[in-house]
Design a binder for these strands. Structure first.
Lengths: 193, 193
DNA sequence: TGACATCTATCTACTAGTAGGTAGAATAGA
DNA sequence: TCTATTCTACCTACTAGTAGATAGATGTCA
């Protein structure tokens, strides 16, 4: 049939959606199979074990993050603009509500996750923090804004705060809660000059 | 036999520990039964459904929070001291590492949780925010410290940030990450005078 | 006090359904 | 025909939950 690439992509896409809404433990091969329109056994051909599928979903999600951050760097020069774009990126588009970062969700399940998935989750969090630290350092160094704490502290706080904001938006099923936390969080951390 | 109260307590205690480490979806009656030393069927005598057990665990956790906050109010008068005690409370003792708030964890699983559990989770988050808002308002009103944002904004940001801090500590299995976020978070939000 | 009845708490044994995973046959395109 | 892909059919382990029995404690009343 030569639909392997096609099917693999569809499996990954469905698995991503399921993982983002339910997490790792609450989705099954049966859920994916139903969405893709194949049998559960067929998924094992593309991804021998559930851990393989989850790891690949995370790895791609992480790659997408790296690309998105590179795009921000390319399109925006001002560190303050970059920060706001980052916050908006995490907040998601209009159709994706409430916003939720896949890896923030998986972080909550860490103790029950296969180790190869945990590696990707931690890598994602580290990538985020590293980029934020760089942008915050640049802004502070060039005097565009002043920080309430050191750049790497601000990066950690910002990442953690946005994570908590997404979780709250999810718990109350109200995407406005994200902005209601993200905005004052930025205000408290970064003082524009 | 008259061990009902005893057994009920032991079931609740085991369920609490399991839920705090694995969340709702990744623990089973079999896990609880093994720890308590009874059969799974016996758990159904005390808690007809898994949702009943989880709801009770959450309700008690929530009550414990309310009590703990009342104790803080009773023992400490200074709003700044109360805040630091709160942060330490969330960070847990020396033996409980890495720290994790049960309801912060469950917030991540919200879409897959029985509604009666969700009610308790949201109630917990609201209780926390209400208390924080009050303490922050008092501190700001009496001029003990100044806030970077409004008291209720600061309360939301603080709660979200600590939640993200606990998640990070869990993901990296390193309790130091909690303090590494909590401390600068407080610094950025609350300026002592 | 003794007998009967009820209650508590647990058990064994079971149900129906789901989990992830495997073996090997069928199919289809190059 | 060879190879890639998907299928049917199955497996074992586990899920929450139920049915019915039972041991022993407690209550009630003649």
């Amino acid at each position: 049939m030569e639909q392997r690439a096609n099917t693999t992509e569809r499996i990954l896409e469905s698995a991503y959606e399921l993982m983002q809404t339910r997490g790792y433990n609450a989705f099954s091969y049966a859920d994916v199979a139903e969405r893709v329109g194949i049998r559960t056994a067929s998924i094992h051909y593309h991804f021998p074990a559930k851990a393989d599928l989850a790891r690949e979903v995370c790895a791609r999600y992480r790659s997408a993050l790296v690309e998105a951050l590179a795009t921000i760097d390319r399109e925006l020069a001002d560190p303050a603009d970059r920060l706001h774009r980052f916050v908006a990126l995490q907040g998601g588009g209009i159709d994706r509500r409430p916003p939720m970062c896949l890896c923030a969700l998986l972080a909550a399940e860490c103790p029950t996750l296969p180790e190869e998935v945990n590696v990707e989750v931690r890598g994602f969090l580290s990538d985020q923090e590293a980029w934020l630290t760089r942008v915050l350092s640049e802004g502070a160094a060039t005097g565009l804004f002043s920080l309430a704490v050191t750049p790497d502290e601000a990066a950690r706080v910002l990442r953690a705060g946005l994570e908590g904001a997404m979780l709250a938006a999810r718990a109350y099923d109200d995407r406005k809660r994200y902005d209601a936390i993200a905005q004052p969080l930025l205000t408290a951390l970064v003082r524009s000059k």
